[in-house]
């Protein structure tokens, strides 16, 4: 399983998959967050606006989830074969929640003035899918019981106090991203409303991130050594410092009327730093404590075959995805979207 070919494709696949998963978290993150915030909207008109702010793009955003799942399968199949069965129930809940949330876009507008089951499906579906993803994240950091290339624990192992906290963390995080998006797409009263929800989400996210950041090194000796041994503690100190600066920027952008892009951009920045923090904690493991990226990798020929197309296709995808965002740029309009 150690690559025999002349080129080691593992680092580049790590980078591609890392970027793919990050794109998913950022993009579906904000639209799942918008889905959660949708539950707080007061009347039909604001619900229509909130939903139409993501209607043309949610499908593309969710496509990154398929890419993340299939990318893990393609680049690190042993990790896929261990992690996915281990988080059987969170994945189930996520998929079911995404189903109800996804069809709500289509079904709700046949009866928009009334708050129907589809409205609840959209909001609670977004909430449950996010929470389930957070549990997957927590379970992943904690690691899995394995034998060879199989997961041997129980399907309930993934529900721990730690994973419940990471679940909450992600809920507040996506809400913050969603609020940033709404500030960007809304005006006037609706924007003020989004700022208020953003401040609420920010406080939740700050508390949850602090808890997780203290808990993780206490729980895991490897991660403690990674961060607190000399000289790592000095080399890695920019991570918490930049995070703190970004947190301050987020808070002040949420409170400043003129900052339209600030809340969204700073929230993305906070996600980048958290993501980086997890990557630093776990590197070079893909199944913590058990398999490194290299041990879990697929055959070099597989990685090469897929790389050829990916290097060509990813820029093209980013280009036309960018174009579709460009078409729907600017403030959301009441007359574009479902009706």
């Amino acid at each position: 399983m150690i690559p025999q070919g002349p080129i080691d494709f593992v680092p580049i696949w790590t980078l591609i998959l890392g970027l793919g998963v990050f794109f998913y978290v950022m993009l579906d993150g904000f639209d799942l967050g918008v889905g959660i915030l949708y539950g707080f909207a007061r009347d039909t008109a604001s619900r229509n606006l909130v939903m139409n702010s993501i209607a043309p793009i949610w499908d593309g955003n969710e496509t990154w989830l398929v890419l993340g799942g299939v990318g893990l399968f393609a680049a690190f199949p042993i990790a896929f074969g261990i992690i996915i069965p281990a988080v059987y129930f969170p994945i189930l809940v996520m998929l079911l929640a995404l189903i109800f949330r996804g069809v709500a876009f289509e079904f709700r507008f046949r009866d928009a003035p009334n708050r129907t089951g589809w409205d609840h499906g959209f909001c609670y579906g977004s909430l449950l899918a996010t929470f389930a993803q957070g549990i997957v994240l927590g379970a992943f950091i904690q690691g899995f019981r394995t034998d060879g290339t199989s997961f041997t624990g129980s399907s309930l192992d993934c529900f721990t106090p730690f994973s419940l906290i990471t679940g909450l963390c992600l809920v507040f995080g996506y809400m913050l991203l969603g609020a940033g998006w709404l500030v960007l797409k809304m005006e006037g009263e609706m924007q003020d409303w989004a700022r208020r929800l953003g401040r609420f989400a920010f406080i939740g996210v700050a508390l949850a991130v602090i808890v997780v950041s203290i808990w993780t090194p206490i729980m895991d000796a490897d991660i403690r050594r990674r961060w607190f041994s000399w000289p790592n503690i000095a080399l890695l100190s920019p991570v918490p410092i930049i995070t703190a600066v970004l947190a301050w920027a987020e808070w002040s952008a949420l409170n400043r009327r003129r900052a339209e892009y600030g809340p969204f951009v700073a929230a993305i920045g906070l996600f980048v730093m958290s993501y980086l923090g997890i990557a630093i904690s776990l590197w070079p493991m893909i199944v913590p404590h058990r398999y490194t990226l290299w041990q879990a990798a697929s055959a070099p020929s597989t990685q090469a075959f897929l790389l050829v197309g990916t290097l060509f296709l990813l820029p093209v995808i980013l280009m036309y995805t960018g174009w579709s965002y460009w078409v729907f740029r600017g403030k959301v309009r009441a007359d574009i979207g479902y009706h």
């Binding site: 496509t63 299939v70 399968f73 393609a74 199949p77 697929s298 075959f305 990916t310 990813l314 579709s324």
Partner: peptide, 19 residues
């Protein structure tokens, strides 16, 4: 896995963006 990944890369993104 690369066959499924190519389905996502070539088809799903194309559909989603232009839909």
């Amino acid at each position: 896995s690369p066959l499924l990944a190519y389905e996502g890369l070539i088809a799903f993104f194309l559909e989603a963006a232009f839909l």
